[in-house]
C-alpha cells in the first residue's frame, strides 16, 4: 500500500458515494447511464469472485464488499426504485460492442487460462471501457449536471492514481502487471477529454456543456 494506491481507492469509493447520494437525494437518476452502471456491477462480480477463495487483507475484503454492494444498490435504484426517472432514450450505447471484444480479448490475452484468471482479465478489460455509455450519454445530451461531473472526475481520477501506484510499485517493489497497466492506461485516456472540460468549465462554476 502506498499513498497513490490509497488515494486511488478513496477516489473510487468517493465517486460511488457521490453517485448514490445524488440518486437518493434527488430521487432521480436522470443523466446517469444505467448501461455503464450494469457494466460496472459486472466488472465487480467477475473480479471479486476471489473474495471467497483468496484472503489478502481486511482492507481488501471490506473494499470488495463495498464495491459489490454499492454497485448492486446503484443498479437497483436505477432499474427498480427510480426506474421512472431513468433516461433510457439517451442511454443508447450498444454494450455488445464492448462486451464481445472484452470476452474475446480476455480469452486470448491473459496470465493463465483458468476460469478465475480469465474472469479477472475480462473484468480488467471491461472496466477500462465501461464508462463509455456514460460519456456517450453526456455527449448525446450535450451536458451533465455538476454532481454527475464530480462523479465522473472522481471515477476517472481513481485509475489515473493507480497508474502512479503502478509506477511506484515497479520501481520500489519490482511489481508490475502488464494487463492491468495496459487497461489502466486505456481507461485513463478515455477520461482525458472529460478532465479537460471539467477543469476548464466545472471548476470555474460553469455547467458542463459541450460546444454545439
Amino acid at each position: 500500500m502506498n499513498v497513490f494506491r490509497l488515494a486511488g481507492d478513496l477516489a473510487h469509493v468517493f465517486a460511488i458515494i457521490i453517485l448514490l447520494l445524488k440518486i437518493w437525494k434527488t430521487r432521480s437518476c436522470a443523466g446517469i447511464s444505467g448501461k455503464s452502471q450494469v457494466l460496472f456491477a459486472l466488472v465487480y462480480l467477475t473480479r471479486y469472485l476471489d473474495l471467497f477463495t483468496t484472503y489478502v487483507s481486511l482492507y481488501n475484503s471490506v473494499m470488495k464488499v463495498i464495491f459489490l454492494a454499492s454497485s448492486g444498490a446503484t443498479v437497483y435504484l436505477m432499474y427498480v426504485k427510480f426506474k421512472a426517472t431513468y433516461d433510457h432514450n439517451h442511454d443508447s450505447f450498444r454494450v455488445e460492442f464492448l462486451l464481445v471484444p472484452c470476452v474475446l480479448l480476455s480469452l486470448l490475452i491473459n496470465h493463465d487460462f483458468t476460469v478465475m484468471e480469465v474472469l479477472w482479465t475480462f473484468s480488467i478489460y471491461l472496466e477500462s471501457v465501461a464508462i463509455l455509455p456514460q460519456l456517450f450519454m453526456v455527449s448525446k445530451t450535450g451536458e451533465a449536471e455538476s454532481i454527475t461531473s464530480h462523479y465522473l472526475f472522481a471515477l476517472g481520477s481513481y485509475r489515473a492514481l493507480y497508474l502512479l501506484n503502478w509506477i511506484y510499485r515497479y520501481f520500489v517493489e519490482s511489481h508490475y502487471d502488464l494487463i492491468a497497466i495496459f487497461a489502466g492506461v486505456v481507461q485513463t485516456i478515455l477520461y482525458c477529454d472529460f478532465f479537460y472540460l471539467y477543469i476548464t468549465k466545472v471548476l470555474k462554476g460553469k455547467r458542463l456543456q459541450l460546444p454545439a
Binding site: 494506491r5 476471489d50 483468496t54 478465475m116 479477472w120
Partner: peptide, 10 residues
C-alpha cells in the same frame, strides 16, 4: 509465476 494470490489490488 503470476497468480491470483498476488492480486492485492482492487
Amino acid at each position: 509465476r503470476y497468480t491470483l494470490l498476488q492480486k492485492d489490488e482492487l
